[in-house]
Amino acid sequence: MMPMLESVIGTVLSSFIIVIISTFMALLLDFLFPSFSRWTRTFLFFIVLTVVLYPAYEHLQMIRSITQTVATMFISVYPLLTASILASGGSFSMLNFQPAMLLFANGAVILSDKILIPMLSAALLFDIVSRFHPAIPFTRMSDLLRGSLIGLVSALVAAYSIFITAGGTISWALTGVTSEPIKKLISQNIPLVGSFMTDSLGAIGRYSSGASVFIGAWLIVTIWSVALLPTLKTLLTGFLYRWTAALIEPFANEDITGILDDIGKTLFVLCAVSFLVAFAFIYTALFTVILVKLITVVK
């Protein structure tokens, strides 16, 4: 956990320190040459954009490549899974296998590659345009894009959880009085996507605890941490953007803090998208492991 934290903060922190220092330099320049202030603002805006956009763009690329990997995994594993289910019959009926789930997962992965990430980049661009040129605002457009993305992603996860819980035999050990305060804390403290995250965590948990009888708790923990690592990284970077915005607000221009805040918001939505992909990954990984286990047990 700690090396991951250090690597995330180490790569992003240097760019934020550049932002803080250049904002302060712009403040000094404004004080020394008041007539030059419009140019100073433009230059500062471009410096901040070049420095700050790179980590966000890197995260977009990371989620896109992960999505592609998961999609390839689905397409290669799906025929094998269906064939083995047909062949083994009885043993799989215990696990409540639903082929529609695989279809959903595959659809979600393709959707996030073809629609969600381009829409997110467009929202980012609209934010930048409306901050750079306040006379032509596109704020409603970017809010609309982000809002519809959140709606789409949460509808997909709701569909997943309906499919998973429809079977009835699967139940999550953590649902109950103990986990409720933690869920409440997450849903209130992570802006935009908090409640969505706790809901989908519940759905994944319900499924994987049913499967843990077959494949063991440690493997489940491993699959979970591998799948959720990109999401955590994106979440942490989004928070770093908002922290920097909060830190420089007293002495910086409204545009600079606004753009940092907007990029942070977009990264939170990206976090929700990566959550969806992680969900698909956990599902496939669990099924593959169960399949291999059953094949070896039968032999």
Binding site: T42, L125, H133, I136
Partner: peptide
């Protein structure tokens, strides 16, 4: 187009 108009006008 949006980006072009923005940069040119600013």
């Amino acid at each position: 187009g949006v980006l072009f108009i923005t940069i040119l006008s600013s």
